[in-house]
Design a protein around this nucleic acid. Structure first.
Lengths: 207, 207
DNA sequence: AGATCTGTCTACCATATGGTAAGTGACCAA
DNA sequence: TTGGTCACTTACCATATGGTAGACAGATCT
C-alpha cells in the first residue's frame, strides 16, 4: 500500500487528492475508460506524480477500493448496529444509504461499477463488505424468526433491497426517462417511495 | 443507418455479426473499453470491415442501440398489452423480462450500461423505450385508481421495479457476494423472490 | 469485353495510453 | 558542507486506439 505523504500547505496530501479524483472518475466514467493523463490534468499535476504514489493503474484502483470500503462500512455499520429493532432498523439503514448518496455519490457509483471490474478488483470490494452482508442477513433472519417480518430468503431479500436502493440512487439516465430530475427534492421522494414499498412488502401485522 | 448487406453463405450477414458482437462487448466491457480491433479479431475480420459497415465507433453504438431497443420493445410490449389485468399483468411482464435475461442477457446489460453512455447515446435508448414507460405507468395508475393496487406514484414505483429487476439480473459480482451463483436455477429463485416481494408490496386485499 | 459496384483487405497515420529512466530542487541529518 | 531522501518533474517508449486512403477480387450491368 502507498504511504501517506504529509499534507502540503494546500491542506490535503497529494495522494489523497489523487484517490479522491480517481474514485470519482472510476465511479462515473468507469475504470478502463479513465486515463491517468486526464486524471493528472484535472489535478494539475503530472501523470508521473500519480505513478509515484501508485506504481500502476491497477494498484491505484485497489487503493481506491480499499479506502472506499472502509468509508462505506463506517457509514452503514453504525445504523446497522445501533438503530432500534424490527422495521425501524431497516428504515435507518436505508436512510443512511441515501444520506451517503447525497454526500458522496461516488461511493455508491463505485459499488455499482463493481460488476465491470471483474476479478480480482471486484473480489476485493466484495470481501471487504462481506461482514456487513453477513450482519444484515442475520438481522433479517432474526426478525423473520421473531415474526416481525414476512418470511423470505434473507440473502435474496437483501439482494433485492440492495438492487432497488442502488438503482434508484445511481441510474441517473433512467431516472430522467422516468421523469425524475436528479435533484435533492427528488432524492427525498425516491427515498420515501422505497421506504413505503419495503414497509408494505416486509412488515407483518396491521400496516 | 447502414444498409443491410445480403447474408453470405455463412448464414447471417457480416453487419449483423458485427452488431451482435458489439452489443455483447458494449454490454459487458462497456462502450469506451471496447476496441474495434478486439471486436474485429473476435469476428475474424479486419477492423476496416467494421468501419466499412459502420463509419465510426459512435455510429456503431447507435446502430446497436436502435436494434436493441426494437428487440426490447418487442419482448415487453406483448405481455404488457395482452396479459390479464391487475397483478397478473405485472407478473407476466416480470416473467418476460426474466425470460429475456436468460435468452439474451446482453440486452439487459446494455440497458444497465445506459448510465455511462451519456448524451446522446443514452437519450437515444431512452427515447426509443419511452412509449413502453408511458404505457406501463398508465397501467399501474389505472390499477391503483381501481383499487387493485396500493397507491404509489406510478413513475417512482416503476423506477423501483425496474431497479430491482435489472439489478437482480445484471449484478453478477454482487450476486456472488450474496451467495448466489449465476445459474439457471438461481435465476428462477431470484425471479420468484422478486414476484413475492412485489406481490406483497402491491396487491391489496387478502394476500 | 469493359466499366462499375460491393465487400474486404493492406498500408498508414496521429493521437493517447500505461509505464520506465533519469533528472531537479527542497529539506534534513551527519 | 555534504550526502541522502522525498516529492515531483521532464524526456522517452512500445503499444493500442479510432480513422483515412487506396488496392484488389468477384459479381453485376451494358
Amino acid at each position: 500500500m502507498a504511504r501517506q505523504g504529509r499534507p502540503g500547505a494546500s491542506g490535503i496530501s497529494t495522494s489523497e487528492r489523487i484517490l479522491d479524483a480517481a474514485l470519482v472518475s472510476f465511479a462515473t466514467r468507469g475504470y478502463e475508460a479513465s486515463s491517468l493523463d486526464v486524471l493528472a490534468a484535472g489535478l494539475e499535476i503530472r501523470k508521473q506524480t500519480i505513478l509515484y504514489w501508485f506504481p500502476s493503474k491497477e494498484i491505484l484502483l485497489e487503493a481506491v477500493i480499499d479506502r472506499s470500503a472502509v468509508e462505506l462500512s463506517a457509514a452503514l455499520e453504525h445504523s446497522l448496529t445501533t438503530a432500534g429493532g424490527g422495521w425501524s432498523r431497516v428504515d435507518a439503514v436505508v436512510r443512511s444509504v441515501f444520506r451517503l448518496a447525497a454526500r458522496r455519490p461516488e461511493l455508491l457509483g463505485l459499488v455499482r461499477e463493481m460488476g465491470r471490474l471483474g476479478t480480482p478488483a471486484a473480489t476485493r470490494l466484495v470481501v471487504a463488505l462481506e461482514p456487513l452482508v453477513v450482519r444484515a442477513s442475520d438481522f433479517l433472519e432474526g426478525e423473520m424468526d421473531a415474526g416481525h417480518m414476512r418470511r423470505h430468503e434473507p440473502r435474496l431479500l437483501l439482494l433485492a433491497i440492495y438492487s432497488t436502493v442502488i438503482g434508484m440512487l445511481t441510474e441517473v439516465e433512467v431516472l430522467r426517462a422516468f421523469g425524475e430530475e436528479p435533484t435533492a427534492r427528488s432524492l427525498v421522494r425516491r427515498r420515501n417511495e422505497i421506504l413505503e414499498l419495503l414497509r408494505s412488502a416486509l412488515v407483518t401485522g396491521p400496516g
